[in-house]
Amino acid sequence: MPVNSATERKKSLRQVIAEHNSDPGALLDILREAQEIHGYLSTAVMEEIADQLGIPVSRVYGVATFYTLLATEPKGKHIIRVCESPPCHIRGAVNILETLQEVLGVNPGETTEDKKFTLELTSCLGVCGVAPAMMIGDQVYGNLTPERVKEILKTYE
């Protein structure tokens, strides 16, 4: 849950860094927790982390942009991750993605104008038994059909 006030967020971030003893080895964990607090990793947040850990901010940014679960730009309220791995592909993931693109009016990597949804592609979610699958936030949806996708999206209206 993103924390609300700016000062509170700053405090929480410092606390997270302190809990990890300002250890650069824990950068990945710190970034994930910072993202929980701030919603995404802004340059200012990454600079704060770099400063506290004593490493160049370029390295923090390089790490943040390497991992798909870390975001350096603000995202929509709900992040939709569509699995495009081969097991989902052969069970029709293309149709799912097309449906989402059509309903939301955005391409993968983009956020809807109302900032409600960000559409992303993801590698295997490990729920191939119910392929094709997607995640909205932490919730996994499997055995998708274009119709089910539309119904699921309605529940987020």
């Binding site: 340059t43 990454m46 600079e47 923090v60 940014y61 390089g62 942009t65 390497f66």
Partner: peptide
């Protein structure tokens, strides 16, 4: 300067 992004999208660039 540091590597940014990954795969084919990798570049060498300043932070942010």
């Amino acid at each position: 300067l540091y590597p940014v992004n990954r795969g084919f999208d990798t570049t060498i660039a300043p932070a942010g």
